[in-house]
Design a protein around this nucleic acid. Structure first.
Lengths: 232, 232
DNA sequence: CGCACCGATTCCTCCGATGAATCCGCGGAC
DNA sequence: GTCCGCGGATTCATCGGAGGAATCGGTGCG
């Protein structure tokens, strides 16, 4: 076990043991290094690793703090590794996205707030205006697409689902998706799919929301490269 | 942007740009540090961060290499942050596990190999023998429970699902789960649920496999603390 | 041909020093 | 009394160098 691993494990124990909680401040580098029996260099490597993982947050001139440990923050590192994958593994990732967003849509049907519903409608109207213009501002449509899905995922009420979807269907993955999607009418169909999801959410129909979201994401999935995942 | 972040971003570019691929060896610390314009200390912090993320692998006396970049390896860091969460957020995590494993069970019904089917049966028989003994070896049953779920998740054929389930329902989470599950007959019911899943898989009935797995994991979920997630 | 040895290579760890950012108390202006 | 600016103290950020540990590959012996 390397010195750095000992640092990571030591901090983990301090957190799980209750000595450190979200927002708490760690001892200064010199003291913590001495306590863990490592040099400052090794300590910094371990702290930096935990920073990348979203567990710690260092501020120059201030100190090192434990983050909120929210799923959203802890999953943010996942986005980095997901973006590292090439187009070849886009399909299994998107399948996960589909399953999670479908569940979120079903959950959202029962608990979406009027504000979120109105906000989602505004996004859809904005997207419709974008499509009505010529030439179509593809970047703006992607932005609206992302915003709509984010609202639905978030209204599912499960922060882990929200964070995972954000990581898997983040900016890079989303751009890669639309880049290979130049078939005629794809954006118009996406718009219709979104509107169908919205109506299901507005009606509080969880089953319809699930089906609409699943169908929409399956449509998208079929445009991805890789072997077809035969369902039934 | 800190020097370390520049290192992480630099290596990321080298990978996404095709200069580095899985298994490739990185330049030695001195050269890479000079190329990226940072000191060896900062370089090491960045490399270490990428190591814990499962992107790089350093071997003393040998060199630093890019890993296979398999989803399984890249998601392994997720297990660390999941284990960091207390019992309070176990429910949203388990809901994700339920959704993913349900999907995996449905997929597995159509593509599970005879060998995996037989192996799963052996696990179930072993678990049955464990339950027949008195006193019951709880650790052994947990082991069999983990093995069964792992086989099903793996046979779903989606490596991302497999890796995510492994991270979310890993060793620590699993132990935490069973620790709070002392109600009478819980293990016997789990065994019956598993057998029902197995029969669905053996029959190639995807819908039955989905329902059985979902019901089983919902049963487990209801024993968790936290607000109930009302479904419909 | 097989095996032990040994030097070269590479990462690992430590140490000390300087720079940069932040915080906090102090004093002055109004 | 309140607000503002300033300077010292604190803390993290970065750098450079040195020695140790592990691995690899060539060499020579049996």
């Amino acid at each position: 076990m390397s010195r750095t691993d000992e640092v990571v494990d030591g901090v983990r124990r301090m957190i799980t043991g209750g000595e450190l909680g979200p927002g708490d401040r760690l001892p200064v580098e010199k003291d913590l290094a001495e306590r863990l029996g490592v040099s400052r260099g090794s300590l910094r490597e371990g702290v930096r690793a935990l920073t990348v993982l979203g567990v710690l947050d260092t501020r120059q001139g201030d100190g090192t703090y434990v983050t909120s440990l929210d799923p959203a923050r802890l999953m943010s590192s996942l986005q980095f590794v997901v973006d590292l994958h090439g187009d070849t593994s886009a399909r299994p990732f998107h399948a996960v996205r589909r399953v999670l967003e479908t569940e979120a849509a079903g959950l959202a049907a029962h608990r979406i707030t009027p504000e979120a519903l109105e906000q989602a409608l505004a996004v859809l109207e904005q997207a419709a205006r974008t499509l009505a213009q010529e030439p179509v501002d593809h970047a703006a449509f992607i932005e609206a697409d992302t915003a709509f899905h984010r609202i639905v995922a978030d209204q599912g009420g499960n922060p882990v689902i929200t964070a995972l979807v954000e990581a898997i269907a983040g900016r890079t993955a989303r751009e890669r998706l639309w880049r290979g999607l130049h078939e005629e009418g794809a954006e118009a169909r996406t718009q219709r799919d979104h509107e169908a999801v919205w109506r299901a959410l507005a009606a509080g129909d969880a089953e319809a929301a699930r089906v609409r979201m699943a169908a929409h994401l399956l449509d998208v999935e079929e445009t991805l490269p890789g072997p077809e995942v035969t369902e039934d």
